[in-house]
């Protein structure tokens, strides 16, 4: 488990040796503040109107609206980015191998090869991919500190969460994990039984989205528990 102290990232070689990088999001800890989504946009220079990471409200009629009827109300969030499925339908669908599965489990996109047909977006059951309908606009301008390490995307290509591939291949944690103020996001190797993600999944009830579709997501949610929690799945 690598860590970050006062903005200084400490690499962890375990992440570099991982064979199935995955994430666990604890719904008991998530407060729906969108810090992960903002950090993601900064790190990856994601254009206005595009989100690689969204914080979904479970059950309500609108964002930040609780589920249920007063007084039996519940509130929980499902912070969602690409699930980096083990059986990714997008990778199967891509006609040019522009989206592909890396040996460490990350589903990545080659922005120089993508022809912009959007078949991967059709194939994704989770709406986790976005298309550059125009040249991405950054306002305020892109963060110069990360421009160099984040590949620029032109208009006309599909993009999505890469588990911060430029960081994780260096043994650093994805930016959303570092930024989360409550530590709700945990990152590690799902194939390693001693990783924090594996231990959490062994000890806490969890779910993945649409398990019946056989995509085998690498992002798991720890189910909200406690007296005020009813359910927790969308």
């Amino acid at each position: 488990m690598s860590t970050s102290y006062a903005g200084i990232d400490v690499p962890d070689s375990a992440l570099q040796k991982a064979t199935r990088l995955g994430m666990v999001v604890d719904q008991n800890k998530c407060i729906g503040c969108w810090t992960c989504a903002v950090a993601c946009k900064q790190q990856q220079n994601v254009g206005i109107g595009l989100y690689w990471l969204r914080v979904l409200t479970v059950g309500g009629d609108a964002m930040d609206v609780p589920a249920g009827t007063f007084p039996a109300l519940t509130m929980s969030y499902q912070s969602t980015n690409c699930f980096h499925c083990d059986n990714p339908p997008c990778v199967k669908a891509c006609p040019t191998q522009a989206t592909y599965k890396m040996p460490n489990g990350i589903v990545n996109v080659n922005y120089d090869r993508c022809i912009g047909c959007r078949y991967c977006m059709v194939a994704c059951p989770y709406d986790n991919r976005v298309f550059n309908w125009r040249t991405p606009v950054q306002d305020p301008p892109a963060d110069v500190a990360v421009v160099g390490e984040t590949p620029a995307r032109p208009k006309g290509v599909v993009e999505k969460c890469t588990f911060c591939v430029q960081r994780t291949t260096d043994g650093l944690l994805p930016r959303c994990v570092v930024a989360c103020p409550t530590g709700a996001r945990v990152f590690g190797d799902l194939d390693d039984p001693n990783s924090e993600v594996s231990i959490l999944l062994r000890n806490r009830p969890s779910y993945v989205v649409f398990p019946e579709r056989g995509t085998q997501p690498s992002l798991h949610y720890l189910i909200r528990t406690g007296p005020d929690a009813v359910g927790g799945e969308l």
């Binding site: 891509c94 006609p95 191998q97 993508c114 022809i115 912009g116 047909c117 959007r118 078949y119 006309g156």
Partner: peptide, 24 residues
């Protein structure tokens, strides 16, 4: 198909990098 593509100038990638699992 051509106007639907975001990057029509890369259309030859369909042949250079063909992915045979894709129905497309």
């Amino acid at each position: 198909i051509i106007p639907d593509l975001g990057h029509p100038q890369r259309i030859l990638n369909l042949f250079f990098h063909a992915h045979w699992l894709s129905p497309m």
